[in-house]
Design a binder for these strands. Structure first.
Lengths: 249, 249
DNA sequence: CGTCGCGTTGATTTTGCTCAAGATGGGTGG
DNA sequence: CCACCCATCTTGAGCAAAATCAACGCGACG
């Protein structure tokens, strides 16, 4: 694990709110979108007290598939990728995680995928046993975790449909609409959409090669569905058209 | 929903056990593998009391993707498939469910996939609200559901790797080893392995066509990895070889 | 005995992969 | 400040794995 674990709990100085003074977590800007959003202020203080902040640089490695699952994480900034590998190096990105997302929903003995930072990122880290204790004493927390796991299950089923049955064109369209939707869920603009990951990572997420991803972007651009001259920032020009392609119409 | 809902709770007459007399569910032969396995006898009586038995014939349709999620189910016998459809009819089977498996782990407003019986099947059905009430009052139940959801998440991630990065050959090998493993988990022989679903269903699960599945079975048979002359019963002749192919070696 | 659903096999096509060669652009050092 | 460098991205040409299209075998069932 790289990235220096730091003591301290806020990314930005706590703003003077009615919340302030209880626990610095109260001022966390992603709180509402994270597990933490389900907690009352006293619960939050207890929960936040068991968290440590860590930060990673792009490419830094957080956990390895198969290693003992000692910690869980809540992402506060940046983007990370979760992936599985085959012996010959073939890679499948099983998910990208963004601020508010939780790592460790599937309680298992070992991590079910490796996790690596796509961009500079910050996370809160908690001991897995600690989480389990808290989860039994804080019903709200348990409920929220269950809820997040449910969303993850639904999301994964959609990804199965994508990988099993959609064309390259449909996959990329789905990917862009998904990124846009998720940005909006976090209160960010969904258009133009920020694409922090490389073509390689996108390919490994969509079950395609870099080249096919690149060609598909080019085609979507030529067809006037997307615009933007920068690789990592895509303007959606025809949202309905893109959604139709994504949904297989 | 087809299949006549029946009152009554056991598939077989309760055997005279120390368990007997509390609730017929105590004698259910899949109890240990199902959600129910986590419950004490009084809890089981309460839980089982809210269940209704239903049975389906092969091809019968249990729920539709998108329709309001009013019920949850626990499979007691047979095999069912969960699938998603694209507008043009392309289909992705997101999972096969066997006795002991639970339908409704992902609490959502609407079913995230359609479910249809692959073989004659029996299930226990419970109102979703009922389950939620019970789940708050029976911590064991809640814990078990969470646990099952975790397993499902891990399973789905493996399926993403399969669909995104494995060859047809590897997919079919993975499928057979998975069926075998799951049969053993239920206390059944893992070899020869029972393959209750059609080549079509297998194809829609593995992201392949019927023809490719069929050819791949033929090749595995020719290569001496599997045997058995019947379509729906496969003998694994070289378990290590099959596992190696499945794992990408 | 004929039909129908399912599985197998063969011939051909196609989508996306592989291999290869440039373009682009951000970062670094002179 | 500019030139170079290296990552990343793009584009092209040929190829291969699996899809499609088509025919046929076989057992179940009426």
């Amino acid at each position: 694990m790289s990235g220096a674990p730091q003591k301290g709990s806020t990314l930005k100085p706590a703003l003077p709110k009615s919340d302030a003074g209880v626990h610095p977590c109260a001022a966390c800007e992603v709180r509402e979108h994270a597990v933490c959003g389900a907690l009352t202020l006293p619960e939050l203080a207890k929960f936040g007290g068991a968290m440590k902040h860590i930060s990673l640089e792009a490419g830094d490695h957080l956990v390895d598939e198969g290693e003992s699952e000692t910690h869980v994480f809540s992402v506060t900034a940046g983007c990370l990728k979760c992936f599985k590998l085959l012996p010959d190096g073939r890679r499948q990105v099983v998910g990208f995680v963004f601020p508010g997302d939780f790592l460790g929903l599937a309680k298992a003995d070992a991590y079910t995928s490796s996790v690596e930072a796509v961009t500079t990122a910050t996370l809160c880290r908690m001991d897995r046993r600690e989480l389990e204790k808290m989860s039994t004493s804080i019903p709200n927390l348990d409920k929220r975790l269950h809820e997040m796991a449910s969303e993850a299950l639904a999301e994964l089923q959609g990804q199965l449909l994508l990988l099993g049955r959609k064309t390259a064109h449909e996959r990329v369209a789905t990917f862009l609409t998904m990124l846009s939707r998720r940005a909006e869920e976090r209160g960010l603009p969904g258009n133009p959409v920020d694409v922090p990951m490389s073509r390689d990572d996108i390919g490994d997420f969509l079950g395609l090669t870099t080249e096919t991803v690149s060609r598909t972007f080019s085609r979507l651009r030529k067809d006037g569905l997307i615009g933007g001259d920068k690789d990592r920032r895509v303007e959606i020009l025809d949202e309905d058209g893109l959604t139709d392609i994504a949904d297989g119409f």
